[in-house]
């Protein structure tokens, strides 16, 4: 991009913000968010590996075999699919079908939250399996050894925080979908102007990807 596209934009005429510029902004936004999530995952991996001794592998299994988490994974994948279908429909101005897919996405998004909330409450409240604390023997300079407690990170609560972080973004996504749905109802989209739908789809695919990465990491390390 060596040549700027010119600046046709006037503040008084809001709709003139070129769709390209908006999508460009959206991409930067998603890059920012990926860094956010990538750093949390890095942190999880580090803490998980640090907690290795004190925390035998598989201890999270009780949580991770929870059917709710798998259900919500399926839901979030489905929502990604439906919002993409909606996008394909609006490009061809097939209103009815577009609208149906959009509402389906809304419902799936809400369902995701509905399924995840109890799982999160469980994460927050469930105690860690014993032993929480191991001891390490340390030789002192005086020659005697002392036992130093080696506590372990409460991975349940850490998981809770990370899942909460994702859930907050899902809530943001739901709010955005709601705006898109309302605008769709008011007939603001057509085959040329559908940036809102496109961004909703991009965002939703992104959340999907993040969830899969998170869940995958939990499963592999859990």
């Amino acid at each position: 991009m060596s040549q700027g596209p010119g600046s046709p934009y006037r503040p008084e005429e809001r709709h003139v913000i070129p769709a390209r510029a908006q999508t460009f902004g959206m991409i930067i936004f998603l890059v920012t968010l990926s860094i956010l999530f990538a750093s949390t995952m890095l942190l999880y991996v580090l803490l998980r590996l640090m907690a290795q001794e004190a925390y035998p592998p598989g201890a999270l299994r009780g949580i991770l075999t929870n059917a709710k988490l798998y259900t919500s994974t399926l839901i979030v994948l489905a929502a990604s699919l439906t919002v993409h279908m909606a996008l394909l429909r609006i490009r061809r101005e097939r209103w009815q079908s577009f609208f149906r897919w959009l509402v389906a996405t809304d419902l799936l998004a809400l369902a995701f939250l509905a399924v995840q909330t109890p799982a999160m409450v469980q994460l927050l409240t469930s105690p860690l399996p014993e032993p929480l604390v191991t001891v390490q023997s340390v030789e002192r300079v005086t020659g005697d050894t002392i036992e130093v407690p080696r506590p372990a990170t409460n991975l349940h609560r850490l998981l809770f925080v990370l899942v909460l972080l994702h859930a907050l973004h899902v809530i943001g996504g739901v709010a955005y979908l709601w705006v898109v749905t309302r605008r769709a109802l008011r007939g603001l989209y057509d085959h040329e102007h559908y940036v809102g739908v496109r961004h909703a789809a991009m965002y939703w695919h992104f959340l999907d990807l993040v969830w899969l990465c998170m869940f995958g990491t939990f499963l592999v390390l859990g």
Binding site: G6, Y9, P18, G25
Partner: peptide
Amino acid sequence: GLNFIASIHMLRPK
């Protein structure tokens, strides 16, 4: 930052 990146990419005059 996002706003400035987008402005510099998108709004440079001919």
